[in-house]
Design a protein around this nucleic acid. Structure first.
Length: 491
RNA sequence: GGCCCCAUGGUCAAGAGGUUAAGACACGGCCCUUUCAAGGCUGUAACAGGGGUUCGAAUCCCCUUGGGGUCACCA
């Protein structure tokens, strides 16, 4: 029987979920779910100096929001608990000591100062620094002595000096490096906690992780991990290294440079589903031309073999398109619910039917945050440039706009049932009677009642929204202003 | 700089020896139309360069160039 697929998302709690991280989580989730496997959350907090308050909550919240529920983790428990590395601190040291006994690791008492000196020395000579294995030459007695004296120490992995190490990656294939390039990396820090490089191997093994998924920035350290598995005699997991997500200019996404985090995107008005859909396609492609995927569709379609190797640029423009697609695909009620917070903030005119506004807005909204800028005219009629009335394509001028508005008023005044259907019928009948083009009537009306050159919705929808009284009031203002302008123009 | 990885339009990408080199975003045009959108149709645009291998190369190999990653008691 095949081993059950188990992937783990192992973030360090920095309080910031950047897009690359989120995509890694997504792919781990998809790899597991596409094969009926388990998705595990493990918190890698072995760096005590970088702990951030509340950061773990950000991780829980994001996974939940995205619908990527983990099967095991600190909050939900599981057979391999605990799932927080700082709570597992005692499990690592014995493994490190086992490696020392087997001759794959050794104690190192070098001070930070000595290391720094070595490093800057190498730097000044323009050489690459690599630990000089100073402590490898210590005799067992010396080591015993130092340990007894309580001297601080770390445990280093002893790399082979000759030969090469090869490992297989599910997306990058076979990769070989010279062992002489491998540094004797630290496995156990002087504070007794493991480094990521060590903890990660131990935990992945203990937690029976079958697919180790991570960004390609770990590609060059993978041989070291491989050596560790071999030293322990453990089964090597399937490595799945993911291509980086970069900025349009090709550089790496970073918090420091203010690149948008998942949370930022949400605040910018992007929908969770659209973000997930978009990043799923950054580095992976389905074997069909389908572009719109729900999470559960992704779970079915995802396949490791279709992950690409080259880095992909995060394109806001395309995300925007996905977002617009998701917005348009929503039911009116669903859109209303999403839009409501933006609407209530932007529309102070309480007589406006927000549901109707949504109907106009839905196809015209790409991101939620742009809603307020589209509806201001509903609150009040601002002063506007009369030249808006003059529209070549609509064949309107100040004069015929004035005519149309005057004619419209007489018709509108008589309407008792103020709704779109009635407005449509009466106004178009009037157009026919006057023998003019639709635009010559409707453009001036829309202009008069909005004062804007561009609005969501046309004359009829907006008149309906504003109500009879306000519509007539605004039209009369238009008539008044146009009369003065025309008179002045003729004088 | 050493080592590793990558290379198809501006961007995401399909392609795994023989294709008119898909599709999507963006951009342009046309249609629809009471503005703007949405929708429909349509156009511009790519195999980084050079050598091989082969009857035949975007696909395989090598070199060059370009880009990226990594070289911590960080993950």
């Amino acid at each position: 029987m095949e081993r059950q697929v188990r992937t783990r998302y192992a973030p360090s709690p920095t309080g910031y979920m950047h897009i690359g991280n989120l995509r890694t989580a997504l792919y781990e989730y998809l790899i597991a779910k596409s094969q009926n496997g388990k998705f595990i959350l493990r918190i890698e907090d072995t760096d005590q100096e970088r702990l951030v308050e509340g950061a773990v909550d950000v991780i829980y919240k994001t996974l939940k929001l995205c619908g990527m529920q983990h099967d095991e983790g600190p909050d939900v428990g599981g057979p391999y608990a605990p799932y927080v590395q700082s709570e597992r601190k005692d499990t690592y040291k014995p493994y490190a000591e086992e490696l020392v006994k087997k001759g794959h690791a050794y104690y190192c008492f070098c001070t930070k100062e000595r290391l720094d000196a070595l490093r800057s020395d190498a730097e000044s000579k323009n050489q690459t620094f690599m630990y000089d294995r100073h402590c490898l030459n210590l005799t067992p007695e010396e080591i015993e002595e130092k340990l007894k004296n309580g001297e601080p120490y770390v445990i280093r992995q002893k790399m082979p000096r000759e030969g090469t190490t090869t490992f297989e990656d599910a997306v990058y294939g076979s990769i070989t490096v010279e062992n002489s390039m491998l540094e004797d990396q630290i496995l156990l820090k002087s504070d007794g906690l493991p480094t990521y490089n060590f903890a990660n191997v131990i935990d992945d093994h203990l937690m029976a992780i079958t697919h180790v998924v991570r960004g390609s920035e770990y590609l060059s350290s993978a041989p070291k991990y491989n050596l560790l598995y071999e030293a322990f005699g453990w089964e090597i997991p399937t490595y799945v290294h993911l291509p980086l997500i970069v900025k349009p200019d090709g550089s790496k996404l970073s918090k420091r440079k203010g690149d948008a985090s998942f949370e930022d995107l949400i605040n910018m008005g992007y929908l969770v589903e659209a973000i997930i859909n978009y990043i799923a396609l950054l580095g992976w492609s389905p074997d069909t031309n389908q572009e719109i995927f729900s999470l559960s569709e992704l779970e079915k379609a995802f396949n490791i073999s279709r992950i690409s190797k080259s880095p992909s640029a995060f394109d806001m423009n395309k995300l925007r398109w996905f977002n617009a697609e998701y917005i348009r695909a929503m039911s009116l009620d669903a859109f209303y619910e999403k839009a409501l917070p933006y609407l209530t903030e932007a529309i102070t005119n309480k007589t406006i039917d927000l549901k109707k506004v949504c109907k106009l807005l839905q196809a015209r909204t790409e991101v939620l945050t742009e809603i307020p800028s589209k509806v201001g005219f509903l609150n009040e009629l601002a002063d506007y440039d009369l030249n808006i009335y003059v529209h070549k394509k609509m064949k309107t001028t100040l004069e015929n706009s004035l005519e149309s508005l005057k004619a419209a008023v007489t018709v509108l005044e008589d309407i008792t049932t103020w709704d779109e259907a009635t407005l449509h019928e009466k106004l178009l009948t009037l157009v026919e009677k006057l023998g003019i083009k639709n635009g010559q009537m409707l453009w001036p009306i829309r202009t008069a009642i909005t004062g804007w050159e561009v609005t969501p919705g046309g004359a009829i929808e907006i008149a309906d929204l504003l109500g009879k009284e306000e519509t007539l009031r605004r039209i009369r203002i238009g008539i008044d202003r146009l009369e003065k302008a025309v008179a002045a123009g003729n004088a």
